[in-house]
């Protein structure tokens, strides 16, 4: 088990890398689209488009999305490295959930807030940026950090398209060493602190940095 560790650590780093890049991209996409979605009218083609996208992401398994990215991206002429296919697949998945998170958080801010801001003479941009978003962000934090740990877990599925991340590396070692249970235990010991660590950081952010007093209403979409 100890011999395997140095050979697994680079792969572990790939896991972290692919999850972190996807998270950053998905946050950018998801939070901006989700905020926009919250303010769009119900009868707007953009709303339909986003709802269809969110529905597609939420109703199909991640492994199907990864297969789809792997098989379809070359068809439309994008010949990419598996790493970047993985990033695209995970971003596609996570952005869908994060649109929903951002939408739910922004819509949960009471209407009186925007009305009060407007009556104080703020334009729509200032209303959103100075009044709605700061409050909505607070409610998003638990859900978004939850999403972080989901992403790390989803990255293990990228092994099916032979991206050399932790799970794939361990599987490859299993095939040569036949130490199945030991390598699975090492994997669990590497994943567990990463994912639980992420949720610990989340709790720290919730309570200490952003100062939730007691239990605030938060959004949960999974």
């Amino acid at each position: 088990m100890l011999d395997a560790l140095p050979r697994l650590l680079p792969a572990f780093w790939v896991t972290i890398e692919v999850s972190a890049i996807s998270l950053a991209l998905a946050m950018l996409l998801g939070l901006s689209c989700g905020t926009a979605r919250a303010f769009l009218a119900k009868r707007n083609p953009l709303t339909w488009l986003m709802d269809a996208y969110v529905g597609l992401v939420r109703c199909t398994p991640i492994i199907v999305q990864i297969y789809a990215a792997y098989l379809l991206l070359p068809k439309i002429g994008m010949r990419l490295d598996v790493f970047w296919i993985g990033v695209i697949a995970l971003t596609f998945n996570s952005a869908g959930y994060q649109i929903e998170i951002a939408r739910a958080a922004v819509q949960s801010i009471s209407k009186g807030q925007t009305e009060a801001a407007t009556s104080l003479g703020l334009g729509w941009w200032h209303t959103i940026r100075l009044v709605v978003l700061p409050q909505a962000f607070k409610r998003m934090i638990p859900a978004v950090t939850n999403e972080m740990s989901h992403l790390v877990k989803a990255s293990a599925v990228l092994s099916v398209i032979s991206l050399f991340e932790l799970h794939k590396a361990a599987t490859a070692l299993q095939a040569t060493s036949f130490k199945f249970v030991e390598l699975l235990a090492v994997q669990a010991m590497l994943y567990l602190p990463l994912i639980l660590g992420v949720s610990r950081i989340a709790r720290y952010l919730e309570t200490d940095v952003f100062g939730f007093e007691g239990k605030t209403e938060t959004v949960d979409i999974r």
Binding site: K153, S155, H167, A188, L192
Partner: peptide
């Protein structure tokens, strides 16, 4: 069960 990827659990 929450901290280990589902794929790894299945393999286990």
């Amino acid at each position: 069960t929450r901290g280990v990827p589902q794929l790894v659990q299945i393999a286990i």
